[in-house]
């Protein structure tokens, strides 16, 4: 687990060279990156779909909490772990 959580005002950005792709042969969504193919579960896909280069982490959590009728605190943990996992692998960046 990462040492500290991302700040709510951080803006996640999908960098160049990373693309969301529908894999029609295996019927699912994947994230394509240099030498990596990451198969997405529905939660990962829902998070990535909220990343538009302007929405902050706080806004993304609020949107997902409403859409999934869940407590923002719980969503925050999921989103943070998912995003930091991608950041460690240089598949996602954040703007402070």
């Amino acid at each position: 687990m990462p040492d500290s959580a991302l700040p709510a005002e951080a803006v996640p950005v999908i960098p160049r060279g990373v693309r969301l792709h529908h894999d029609h042969v295996r019927d699912g969504w994947v994230l394509l990156a240099p030498e990596r193919t990451i198969r997405l579960d529905p939660i990962g896909l829902a998070i990535l779909r909220q990343i538009d280069g302007t929405a902050s982490l706080g806004q993304i959590v609020a949107t997902l909490a409403e859409a999934y009728d869940a407590a923002p605190e719980q969503i925050t943990g999921d989103v943070d772990a998912f995003l930091q996992g991608l950041m460690e692998r240089r598949i996602l960046e954040v703007r402070p």
Partner: peptide, 21 residues
């Protein structure tokens, strides 16, 4: 070159042979 998948190979394949990535 390396390839990693975070989930098990999905089902759509011919006679148990997975499609290439």
């Amino acid at each position: 070159m390396t390839e990693t998948l975070t989930a098990p190979e999905p089902t759509k394949s011919r006679r148990g042979i997975p499609a290439p990535i």
